[in-house]
Design a protein around this nucleic acid. Structure first.
Lengths: 255, 255
DNA sequence: AAGTGGTCTAGACCACCTC
DNA sequence: AGGTGGTCTAGACCACTTC
């Protein structure tokens, strides 16, 4: 019970940076400002925030707007709220990047080291598993891809993807230059949901050669179905990663 | 562009089951009812919901309450909303269990097959890594545990956990009978946030013997720090799983 | 032009925790 | 008893999509 004295209340005057005419929502502007304050420790671990109403009044915002901003950081695992008590910054090194998980890690990695080799590129009938995952009739034409992804010239992952009919005209050249998600976005397909299953297994001989790892070495596997804004399945992927170079980070929040 | 005709609108009259005096929030009651309707396909894949205002009027709820219920299902990946268009049930087999991820899979597995063997149980000074992860001074006393988790008498995972000072009096016997999270909960420690990192590697000789797998076979690894409702780190765990018996499911939603 | 979800406000009542 | 977050309402205006 030895009390940890709560740190002083410093909600930062810098929040005057709220722009009411910006296209970015006020709750998100506030959430971003608070997150920054937490990460540079002007709001140190354990610090208590003002209550929602007072904070809203100081900022000229309504309580629901303030609540929504705070909720965003609660969902990220940066703040903790308790009824009757208040809102505090979580303890421990929050500073380290959390990341969300592979969908986004993939994207940011692409920005750093845009090397992709297309190993296989073929339109063929869907297998039973592919049809099942893509919600197609078995035998429907699909585009099957195998790519090798490298970062800093080191092989990182083998990506096996299957796409339904409307995307079968994506070319090899496009894929060497751009990420799959970028290509789809430029074609008007916007990803909204990804369902992923993560596990591990021994590498196949083909994979160990590609990845430059020992025979039967362990690989991290992820299979995913992605759904776009219209609710249709637009991609099914089976990926395997070098586990010494790749991992998935997840933050779970119990509500 | 071949149109997928939107299915008829059947928001189910059964939603009369809303109980305004229940301690469970109205938005969650509604979300649960909608989720059930989706899973038993009385709201089939692709079906469009009524708009939020109309739905609210029919149910005697305000729009924010209806919105919050819908948002819950959007976050679960069951519904998709588009401005100017409407709200639809996602395509593809949603019926299959989604699960959230290991924190919850652990808990539900416990209910099915409560076998745990405590292999190691010792209070000792924290290593550098443990101190770092638990936000303690190096050398502070911690409880170090190694447990073998079995399901249906088959070894499933090796769990290596470290707990800070206030939990060092948890006994071996307690751990054989109950899950770690149950024990902590009964001691007034309620988990709120878990930060997890998932990867893979080859099993150590010790692990392969315990798990009954080949030498150097692949294992799925997860390391986690858990934070309770007061914002303190209360557990650090390094787990490894048989990848043929265990995987992590994640649903990502892009907002 | 009409209809949808996205944002924001102002205020109310309640449940819970602490003192 | 007082202060906190949790829930819920009623209404307003806007941005986007579709026709």
């Amino acid at each position: 019970m030895a009390g940890s004295r709560d740190e002083g209340t410093i909600p930062a005057e810098l929040l005057t940076a709220l722009n009411k005419n910006s296209p970015v929502p006020l709750y998100h502007q506030l959430a971003t400002a608070l997150e920054q304050a937490i990460r540079d420790e002007s709001l140190p671990p354990g610090a208590r925030l003002e209550n929602e109403i007072a904070l809203g009044q100081r900022l000229g915002l309504s309580r629901p707007t303030v609540r929504r901003a705070i909720q965003e950081l609660v969902d990220k695992g940066l703040l903790i709220r308790r009824r009757g008590v208040g809102t505090q910054v979580v303890q421990s090194g929050v500073t380290r990047d959390l990341g969300l998980t592979s969908l986004y890690e993939d994207l940011s990695l692409l920005g750093q080291s845009p090397e992709t080799r297309v190993l296989h590129h073929e339109v063929r009938p869907a297998t039973a598993e592919e049809a099942e995952q893509l919600a197609l009739e078995p035998g429907a034409p699909v585009l099957h891809l195998v790519r090798l992804r490298l970062a800093r010239h080191v092989p990182l992952a083998v990506l096996d993807n299957t796409l339904p009919t409307d995307s079968t005209d994506i070319s090899r050249e496009d894929l060497e230059e751009h990420g799959l998600y970028d290509l789809l976005r430029h074609r008007g397909v916007n990803m909204r949901i990804a369902r992923q299953r993560i596990s591990a297994r021994e590498a196949t001989p083909y994979e160990s050669e590609l990845l430059g790892i020992g025979k039967d070495a362990a690989v991290l596997t992820m299979s995913r179905t992605a759904i776009d804004t219209t609710g249709r399945v637009v991609e099914f992927g089976r990926h395997c990663y070098r586990p010494d170079l790749y991992s998935f980070e997840i933050t779970l929040v119990d509500r």
